[in-house]
Design a binder for these strands. Sequence first.
DNA 1: CTACCAAAACTGACCGGTCAGTTCAAATAG
DNA 2: CTATTTGAACTGACCGGTCAGTTTTGGTAG
Lengths: 203, 203
Amino acid sequence: MSEPAHPAQSRRPARTNATRQKLFDASMLLIGERGPASVTVDEIAAAAGVSKGTVYYNFGSKSEMIAALLEHGVEMLESRLVSLSPAAKAVDDLQEMLGAMLDFFAEYPSFAQLLVSEMWRTPGEWHETLTLLRERLVGVIGGAVERVAQENQVDTEITPASVAGAILGATFVIGLDRLVFHPDRSREQALAVVMTVIRGYLR
Amino acid sequence: MSEPAHPAQSRRPARTNATRQKLFDASMLLIGERGPASVTVDEIAAAAGVSKGTVYYNFGSKSEMIAALLEHGVEMLESRLVSLSPAAKAVDDLQEMLGAMLDFFAEYPSFAQLLVSEMWRTPGEWHETLTLLRERLVGVIGGAVERVAQENQVDTEITPASVAGAILGATFVIGLDRLVFHPDRSREQALAVVMTVIRGYLR
DNA sequence: CTACCAAAACTGACCGGTCAGTTCAAATAG
DNA sequence: CTATTTGAACTGACCGGTCAGTTTTGGTAG
């Protein structure tokens, strides 16, 4: 019996991490493409080259596995954003950040798709998890926006927080639009459109 | 046997339209909240106060019903946008249009949610339908953007079409953000943020 | 080096339940 | 009279979750 009791994340029991990574990769792809509800645990397990029982051993349920997947993805994105080398001007900093986001979405399109499809679902199975994750991203971007507001003349009618939210959302949809409807569009073009939001914020 | 042969849309067989409307309302709510895959046909029929058989008589399948739902919603939105009274300046025209979009999303939040969750899904069950519908909306907005480009100095590095796409996406996410995460935010504040994109486009 | 062991990790057949889709005779509305 | 709706039964596939049993791992003792 031995009560599975999910292995503490702090511990690093050899195989487990590799197994989890395989499950992340497989489920990110499948779930991004067809949605959490339409993908079966059997499919995910098969795609990861692992048995169904392993999924339930590592995560307690399908729902918890998806929550962990969401967290994992946002952590990856966040760590990329904060580890960016600071530029001379705050605007350039922000631009680099948004470029990194576009790159991330291009690298993990299924994750971006999953995020937009669940982000605003209310009531949603992962709404609380997503609210927290969103706040973290808005926080990172918001910091950069505030520095822009300090260095430049900006529209004081609009709060930095709402600008950060708009930028986050706009980057999502522009990134996905480019991947799905305009594969010809270059990274620079997409970035230019995203930066339009900032330009409109400056006075 | 009698082969149901879905009633031609052009015909208006009395009760049918009322039945369809009830099904639209009920399914829009349920599907927007929990996603197409998680909602059962029995649920939708019950919520619409209609029997399951009626669903299959009017639409051939669950999938076709959802496709019809998407079309119906976009048609409603489109008809609102094109019936707007033209303003003196093209920018004001665009602003009114985006305001109407925000109002529409506030009125049918579940539809907005459904649209963002399926819009970029590839391969998706309704991807072709959605591609067409998206083009129609981008077309309407794009027209207004082009008139702005004619009346004003704009950033020629960015095409009107990509601006239209960005505006459409930004309006989606800002509208949903407001409904879900910032119910305190006023319509005017949301509109101001959306208009930021246009401001950045102007030179 | 090897034999052994306990815990951790993994397996996959299996179960109970759910759901889309089908059918149809009877009722109702226009 | 015809088009539409009802409601209930049925099916056949599918799916999330369980669990008894198996394999792997990392360590310990001889």
